[in-house]
């Protein structure tokens, strides 16, 4: 089953994937290829189809149409072999609270043919001090690290991590990022879903932005941001009288405009050229600025640019 190094099969190849739940087309034709050793992000708002896609890849959900090949294997023919070689963390699993950290890892450890030593895994996820603590006594971040340990203990080639940092405090998220970066350094492939843009930018080699069950943009974080045609974003809000977007696109340095209600977002190449012109324009139109901020463009801005919505709006 080992692929020849001369012809590395992709870690994950998805072709024409579709899945419908009643009236909802959760996945509407997704194609993706993830190379070995890559950290790949599926980015999108809640309900975009990320979890459905990843659960089809994990063999937990059956697709209506399309092909999924994992490490060159398919669930139809090699389900057992795939389960030996992937490590997953689901969005809402609650591990048994009555067991200790070590007992929980030992349980998952026993399921795999090829296993990493339990002590090594506990050290890797930095739960050494909590080794004998009950799962019920762990913090959210510690529980997530334990979930990763349960995936790591089978020495997987490919991780599927479904929103591993949702609901965690910033420090716990950082710790988890370091862990995932470590997995990647060991040559493991990682497919991660998130609705945190900074997470995708920090961790992922490539990102697919998913919306309404489709991939609407694909590339490295840098490439996606470059799609904006500008590296900066100017956001402002107006009090009272609004101006039309078409007036703003003509301002110097502006490459894109989006507006939701009284809030505007400009994609901008040179902030120092745009801002004076913008202020002058608004003054002439007698509009009052309630708020003005600028930042370097992020994947969030890409999402807004592509869909006109913020990620959190769903």
């Amino acid at each position: 089953m080992t692929a020849s190094p001369a012809l590395p099969l992709p870690a994950l190849a998805i072709r024409g994937l579709q899945k419908r739940y009643g009236p909802v087309q959760a996945v509407a034709g997704i194609d993706l290829t993830v190379a070995r050793g890559e950290c790949f992000g599926l980015l999108g708002p809640n309900g975009a189809g990320k979890t459905t896609t990843i659960e089809i890849c994990e063999g937990l959900t059956e697709a209506d149409a399309g092909e999924v090949s994992i490490l060159g294997l398919t669930h139809r023919e090699h389900a057992a072999e795939i389960r030996e070689r992937i490590g997953i963390s689901l969005q809402e699993t609650q591990l048994t609270e009555k067991l200790t950290v070590e007992e929980t890892i030992a349980l998952f450890h026993s399921f795999y043919r090829r296993r990493r030593p339990i002590a090594e895994v506990i050290a890797a996820v930095q739960l050494g001090e909590k080794r004998t603590a009950r799962v019920g006594q762990l913090s959210g971040g510690q529980k997530q690290r334990l979930a990763l340990a349960c995936a790591l203990v089978g020495d997987p080639d490919l991780f599927f991590l479904d929103e591993p940092t949702t609901g965690l405090d910033p420090q716990s998220r950082r710790q988890l990022w370091d862990l995932i970066t470590g997995f990647k350094a060991e040559g493991r492939t990682i497919v991660i879903t998130t609705h945190y843009m900074d997470e995708a930018e920090h961790l992922c080699d490539r990102v697919a932005i998913v919306d309404h069950g489709k991939v609407i943009a694909l590339g490295t974080p840098r490439q996606l941001i470059a799609m904006l045609g500008s590296e900066h974003v100017v956001e402002f809000a107006l009090d009272g009288l609004l101006v039309d977007e078409s007036e703003l696109i003509g301002l110097p340095g502006v490459t894109g405009v989006s507006r939701s209600d009284h809030r505007y977002q400009l994609d901008v190449t040179h902030v120092h050229r745009t801002i004076p012109a913008l202020l002058a324009h608004l003054k002439a139109r007698q509009s009052v600025i309630a708020e003005l901020t600028t930042h370097t463009a992020t994947l969030e801005d890409v999402f807004v640019h592509l869909t006109g919505r913020h990620l959190r709006d769903g």
């Binding site: 089953m1 080992t2 692929a3 190094p5 590395p8 099969l9 190379a35 070995r36 050793g37 890559e38 490490l71 070689r85 026993s110 795999y112 043919r113 090829r114 296993r115 080639d157 060991e186 040559g187 493991r188």
Partner: peptide, 14 residues
């Protein structure tokens, strides 16, 4: 990108 990780032997069990 790293190459495929070599698959080792099954780990013996106690």
């Amino acid at each position: 990108m790293a190459d495929a990780r070599p698959r080792g032997e099954d780990t013996p069990r106690t």
